[in-house]
Amino acid sequence: MSDTVTTGGAMSRMPKFLRRADRAVATAFACIVALLVFGSLYSPSFLSPEYLLQQLKVASFLGVIATGMMLVILLGQIDLSVPWAVATGAMMASAAAAFGPTGVALAIPFGILCGVMIGVVNGIGVAYLRIPSMIVTLATNAVAQGLMVVYTGGFSPQDSATAAMRYLATGSLIPGVPNAVIVWALIGAATVFLLTRTTFGRSVYAIGNRERAAYLSGVDTRRIVLIAFAIAGGLSAFGGVLLAGYASKAAQSMGDAYLLPAIAAVVLGGTSILGGRGSYLGTVAGVILITLLQSILSVMQMPEAGRQIIYGVVIVSMLLLYGRAPASR
């Protein structure tokens, strides 16, 4: 960013978080404002606090899932097992609820644990067996799908979400603020702390930049990669738990709609798909951007086909704007 250096005088008067934000994050926030303006032209209720809070609540499910995706993308890897990690988390948490009071109490941790296990398999494949992450996560996605198909018999399971899951997704502890938003805020704060204030976070960025250098600097890169994938799996499953609480039960293909938006949110927020660069603020912007886009498209009663096309086009064009690899020299 050479322009940030030359305009240092003017920049130094701006708040710190604005100075540090790069072009991609600024673009994402500008797009959010543009979408809000466009939406308010379309329907005046678009800017009402109730509607915006509702959007934030919907965004928090994607936000939790995208947080895990961001960790993995920062490593320079990708997690394509999101769809069935989400569904597994939701189904297993609901299934645990059928086992009496102990099951109800352990439903949420059990769902998350199942997601962590998927993530551990991914991590072992990527870090220790050195299989490309895209391939191994596709494979674990298929295995998780297979397990869930066997478990449910190919239908959506009959178990319903526990009261705690519903409360987490739809209740509001502080009047007016949905719990899901608080959950996302807590996870976000923890992630920011993890990424900027701990050795683990520094190592994640280091591995994303050049794993070889990180290894030579004494970082146990394989352990870090394994942990990052495990966290990502757990967060995907937790997203599934929240979704199951929101819809009060799990469904077969509930996770399919989250893979592309999760990747898009991370990448649109300026995190480099090659790893090593990106801020959580960007991911937050990306999540809100994607959610608003979805909301506007559904307000406009755009059919599923049109939504898919617009997603694809938006992702490719935003990436062409600022996600290009350097030319070979």
Binding site: I263, A264, V316, L319, L320, A325
Partner: peptide, 12 residues
């Protein structure tokens, strides 16, 4: 366009 094949082809 010099984009990563994974993301580019998921989007297309």
């Amino acid at each position: 366009g010099r984009l990563q094949p994974i993301v580019a082809t998921i989007a297309t």
